[in-house]
Computed example of a mutant assay.
Amino acid sequence: MTAAIEARSLRKVYGELVAVDDVSFSVEPGEIFGILGPNGAGKTTTLEMVEGLREPDGGESRILGERTWPRNAAVLPRVGVQLQASAFFERLTAREQIRTFASLYGVRADQADSWLERVGLTEKADTRSERLSGGQLQRLAIACALVHEPEVVFLDEPTAGVDPQARRNLWDLLRGLNDEGRTLVLTTHHLDEAEALCDRVAIMDHGRILQLDTPAALVRGLDAPVHVYVAPQQLTLDAARGLPGADEAHLDDTSVVISTRAPSDVLTRLAELDALEGLQVRAATLEDVFLDLTGREYRA
């Protein structure tokens, strides 16, 4: 089966800055694929080259088998793009905005209006876009990207500035689109979002892909300890350090924290000591993988 998206040796240079450096990946039909990385990692530039919005200095990209640069009119109606910063027509309401986008693809007005409902903006349909909140504008941008029912959808930080309820509703929307057979590519700074939604993720930094795999495989490959949190009244620090399977133990503000690579041994002994009340277990997450690969320093 032909890949939905293929990027081969993409490269983009601005003066002495190599923004994207020999990036290659493919996305299978019906996959949710995530591109993660700190600010300035090259995520947005990579997506813009794949989408055909920016000319690469090297390499090529294809969507549904079609080259995307030079701009390819054959592929454009089959693709939806939500940019990191979306611009809307001045003085138009949310309904007028989405109907305008829909008209460019020959989509009926009633079909366009249905997308406002799907992103929770029905009550704001007659509100001018400049009076919408940041999160509402983000949802409108997603609706405009999807109004023509594209086969492949690119979403650049789709839930940035969105409140928790709307964020989870958008997750459900994206899963629903994927269940319909659409291919989704997204960037996000929310690592829990990538872990919850993506079939595979690529972690980028300094213009290169550092790791590419399923979230579960990346976490397993980290070989990080499990942290067990026990209330201090349940267990002393000295007792925690003496538990079978405990690699290290320390106190934080509210708990005795036990680090272990043999959590079953630790939990068995805690059960024998009747020290399970209020216990919490935290395994490694995709965020731990991200920080291990990209570091903890602040980025501009």
Rank of each mutant, 00 (worst) to 15 (best):
A271V: 10
D213N: 10
R220L: 12
C198A: 13
L270N: 00
L218G: 02
D192T: 12
L273S: 08
A231C: 13
N169S: 12
E151C: 04
T183L: 06
R261H: 15
I142C: 05
V201Y: 04
A216N: 09
E193T: 04
A216D: 12
A143L: 05
L146P: 06
L267Y: 01
G181T: 08
Q165C: 07
R261L: 13
R241K: 14
D265H: 15
L140H: 04
T183D: 05
D223W: 06
A224N: 03
A239M: 13
D179E: 15
H250R: 14
Q138A: 08
L197S: 03
L243S: 08
R168Y: 13
L177W: 07
T214S: 12
R167F: 05
T183C: 06
D179Y: 03
D199L: 07
H189L: 10
P225G: 08
P263S: 05
P150T: 02
A271K: 11
L155G: 01
L235P: 04
V228N: 02
L276I: 07
L218V: 02
Q136C: 11
L222A: 06
H206A: 15
A141T: 07
L177M: 12
E180W: 13
L222S: 03
E248N: 14
D192Y: 11
H227A: 13
D252T: 06
I258K: 06
D199N: 11
A271H: 12
A145C: 09
